[in-house]
Amino acid sequence: MPEEIDHHQAVLIRKQADEKIVKGEIQDVIFDFAATRVMDSSGIGMIMGRQRVVSNFGGHIYIANASSRIHDILCAAGLQKIVSFITAQETN
């Protein structure tokens, strides 16, 4: 994920992710937030949307390496109920 995630970036990520998920019938997707410093609410909608897409294939969304700031923003809308937060070691 990029250093800053806003509505503009979220639309680009959404398009790219959906193409790959649908084409490869991907089930489990990891979004790595290691480089992300700033994010607005657009990031929440983007993750929620991808969760809906992978759930069609019985998949799950994993959020890796989120800083406490990014974690708090994502959880503000209750995202922790539908995705899993993991650390770098668990990504393999």
């Binding site: 959404r14 607005d40 609410s41 657009s42 929440i44 909608g45 983007m46 929620m48 949307g49 809308a77």
Partner: peptide, 22 residues
């Protein structure tokens, strides 16, 4: 209001004003 959005079709979470306040 948190979670209220008029554009769920655009994957808006309805958290914009809540974050501005926070």
């Amino acid at each position: 209001e948190p979670l209220y959005t008029t554009r769920p079709d655009l994957e808006r979470s309805g958290m914009g004003f809540a974050f501005m306040e926070a």
